[in-house]
């Protein structure tokens, strides 16, 4: 296994899939000459040329729509949106075209499109560049949603996304691009719909989404060291399809669940998981399902405010301990 950064792992996935399949190509704003706003596409223009690494104008809705059309025409486009907030300009094509076309046209075509984009706070980019919107996409039947939190998952899931015949919303995290991790060299794709159990414990289940998978893991170590609480830490890795069974299995063992996400609480991933858990494992719960979410506000710029607006280890520890409180 080699130790590589998250962004390099993504780059490897793109390169390998482009080498393996002529129909895979990349388009997005500044993905070519500039090598990507976060340098994920570094070196690809040089290797594959302008036909397959396409710098586009700033036209999100049309870039995504063209990706859908090209996918209908037999290609496997990988569209990069610079930041998840900009995908809001493309919401029409994502929901009304990408997600619906196969069903609406009775399976006469498929849409093997990947839309990659980073999310998350921490870089002081203010309310238009820092949000976490996985719940918006999770909401939509017809889309697959990946939220890799490690370099290995980033590579394995991106390869799987490119080979998948469905439209995939592939959500990276800005704060993870520089993080290093072991990445298997075999180049095998991972499977969607298989959660990773990052740590095992019998007392409480903590589910962390995107970057919060790492935060959940840190919190679990603190819970063990300082509070004698052993947590199961689960990273769902994909939100659609969802490996709910692994989460339920854990909850049936621990009888407590904490969901950690960076996005907003109303209609969030945690709200959804809490509903699914109580529907499927109500009898096993010893406490209400707890949620730790980003603050219910547009992301502020000022550093202390921004840091206060998304969850940290302490928040997760407190939420986990609260599930042991007598009710």
């Amino acid at each position: 296994m080699a130790e590589v950064r998250y962004r390099e792992a993504l780059n490897q996935a793109l390169r390998e899939e482009m080498q393996a399949d002529e129909s895979v190509f990349i388009m997005g704003e500044d993905v070519g000459v500039f090598q990507g706003a976060f340098k994920v596409t570094a070196g690809l223009l040089e290797e594959f040329g302008e036909k397959r690494v396409r710098d586009t104008p700033i036209s999100e809705n049309t870039i995504v729509g063209m990706g859908v059309g090209a996918a209908m025409g037999g290609l496997r486009p990988v569209v990069e949106i610079m930041t998840i907030n900009f995908s809001l300009l493309a919401m029409d094509q994502i929901v009304n075209s990408a997600a619906s076309i196969r069903y609406m046209f009775n399976a006469q075509v498929k849409v093997p499109l990947v839309i990659r984009m980073p999310q998350g706070g921490g870089h002081q980019l203010g309310p238009t560049h820092s949000h976490s919107l996985e719940a918006w996409f999770l909401h939509v039947p017809g889309l697959l949603v990946a939220v890799p939190s490690t370099p290995a998952d980033a590579k394995g899931l991106l390869k799987a996304a490119i080979r998948d015949d469905n439209p995939v919303i592939f959500i990276e995290h800005e704060a993870l691009y520089g993080k290093k991790g072991e990445v298997p060299e075999n180049g095998e794709p991972l499977r969607f719909g298989e959660a990773a159990v990052r740590r095992e414990g019998d007392d409480v289940t903590i589910v962390g989404v995107s970057r919060m998978a790492a935060t959940a893991l840190q919190a679990a170590e603190t819970l063990a060291a300082e509070h004698e609480v052993e947590a199961d830490v689960i990273d769902p890795r994909t939100l659609r399809p969802l490996d709910l069974d692994t989460i339920l299995e854990s909850v049936r063992k621990t009888n407590r669940a904490v969901i950690v996400e960076e996005g907003w609480p109303h209609g969030g991933v945690g709200a959804n998981f809490a509903a699914l858990i109580q529907e499927q494992a109500f009898d096993y719960l010893d406490a209400p399902v707890a949620r730790v979410t980003g603050a219910d506000i547009p992301m502020p710029y000022s550093k202390p405010l921004e840091q206060a607006a998304f969850p940290h280890e302490e928040h997760v520890v407190q939420a986990a301990l609260a599930t042991f409180r007598d009710l």
């Binding site: 059309g69 090209a70 209908m72 025409g73 290609l75 029409d92 094509q93």
Partner: peptide
């Protein structure tokens, strides 16, 4: 909504 889609199909034909 169909305008980007049609340009995408044209891109595939061209590609």
């Amino acid at each position: 909504g169909s305008l980007p889609l049609s340009a995408g199909v044209a891109l595939a034909a061209d590609y």
